[in-house]
Amino acid sequence: MADRVVRVLVGKPGLDGHDRAAKVMARALRDAGFEVIYTGIRQTPAQVAQTAVQEDVDVVVLNNLTGAHLEVFPLVVEELKKRGRDDIYVLATGVIPFEDVELLKEKGIDEVFGPGTGPIHIINWIKEHVLGEKQGE
């Protein structure tokens, strides 16, 4: 059996046009050995969710820098549920204030990586949760 390769979708729901982080991070995730699919900007939650389903990814990394995360990220979770795939991990990244972290988790986001969190934390989280590999700090 071939090695288990992690598949990640980097999704940008909402009208946000900031794509520098998403593009750079897509490359960083590739360098970590993951297969990475990127939706591009200005996606609806349904677009992101259908992509995740078709590509059968392990993780969806949502990214939004313009303050729509509280409204838009939970809609992606809902869309995934509607499609029978709420088993896929959903992570939140971007300019997310601390007080929103719990609110997002209540709405089905598995983890939140706010301003200043380097990609290594996200990569380690994914390895730990998808591959079951404990990562040393």
Binding site: G14, L15, T44, T66, G67, A68, L70, E71, V72
Partner: peptide, 10 residues
């Protein structure tokens, strides 16, 4: 519809 969550934010 696409303005949900975006109005007056940034």
């Amino acid at each position: 519809d696409l303005a949900v969550g975006e109005v007056g934010k940034v």
